[in-house]
């Protein structure tokens, strides 16, 4: 039963992740007073891209084509590590969260190299900023994981998420919620959302993630956008598992609750995007350093 639920969570991610982007877009449209695009628009876009041919830059090499494929493969693998609430993930081993963080790093490495492969100054600019913000987001993620590991006494992501709320609300509850907050900030930074990055701006100069994929088209772009949606799901699942302390012991109920939570997280992201402006580039480090301070506070809280 638990195994079925784990497989179902992976399948749900694979099938529903584009819908998550749709939910964010609709939330933003609601706040903007518009009706917005259909929920399934992202699926239409992906299918359209899959059916297209491609134009490749004369400057680009095999790396440019390899990047999107590897990125998607990595994020599909990483999803198998992420537990749904207290449910065991498909792929569990001690230290799996380090593997998760570093495989996502591998994805970023090849996205950046593919961007630099085109020789475009715009893409170089995006690549440079991507590495800068990754530098700030990475310690926040690891500090958060350390708090969770210390709080649960476990060394695998599934173990941590299973143990954290297993006895209901515990004294460690408050630091865990703090970590959920910092992970939400990491989500915003890692997935190129406002206030760190604006995927919808009309000026390439102000974008970070989107500008790195300017030259990709057709199937490659579909891989990238689908991979981005899956990555959003992955982080939303991490945040949800912390923020919703519900562990019924019924795998299917837990799964449904988690998936609902993931969509609620998407709505929250949409609300953040609607109510905030994009931060100036120099302000972004301050936001991420502040979240690092929060996770360190949580750490000392739990050590106390």
């Amino acid at each position: 039963m638990t195994l079925t639920a784990s497989i179902l969570h992976w399948l749900a991610a694979v099938l529903l992740a584009p819908l998550l982007v749709g939910v964010i877009n609709r939330t933003k449209a609601f706040f903007g007073g518009r009706r917005g695009q259909p929920f399934l628009q992202v699926y239409h876009d992906l299918f359209k891209l899959m059916g297209k041919g491609a134009v490749y830059s004369q400057t680009a090499t095999w790396i440019f084509r390899f990047g999107p494929m590897l990125g998607l493969a990595v994020v599909l693998t990483a999803l198998a590590i992420v537990p749904a609430g207290g449910l065991r993930a498909l792929f569990v081993f001690p230290g799996d969260f380090v593997f998760l963080a570093y495989t996502l790093g591998l994805m970023r490495f090849f996205t950046v190299l593919a961007a630099l492969d085109t020789g475009s100054a715009f893409e170089g600019m995006g690549a440079s900023r991507e590495m800068q913000f990754a530098l700030l987001a990475e310690p926040v993620l690891f500090a958060g994981l350390a708090v969770l590991a210390a709080g649960s006494g476990q060394l695998s992501l599934s173990g941590i998420y299973n143990q954290l709320w297993s006895a209901g609300m515990r004294p460690e509850g408050a630091p865990v919620l703090l970590v959920a907050l910092t992970l939400l900030m990491v989500l915003l930074a890692e997935n190129a959302r406002i206030p760190v990055d604006d995927p919808a701006t009309h000026l390439e100069l102000t974008m970070i993630h989107e500008v790195m994929v300017l030259d990709h088209c057709g199937v490659d772009l579909a891989f990238i956008q689908y991979g981005a949606a899956l990555k959003l799901w992955l982080f939303a699942a991490l945040v949800t598992g912390l923020a919703i302390p519900l562990r019924t012991g019924q795998p299917m109920v837990d799964l449904v609750v988690t998936i609902a939570g993931i969509f609620i997280t998407a709505v929250v992201v949409g609300i953040v995007e609607s109510t905030m402006a994009r931060l100036r580039l120099v302000r972004v480090p301050q936001m991420l350093v502040a979240s690092l301070a929060l996770s360190l506070a949580a750490f000392f809280w739990i050590l106390r």
Partner: peptide
Amino acid sequence: RLHHGRSIARGPTWDC
């Protein structure tokens, strides 16, 4: 397989 039968062209870098 998806690229099969589609046009695959080479051009300059888009660069906006």
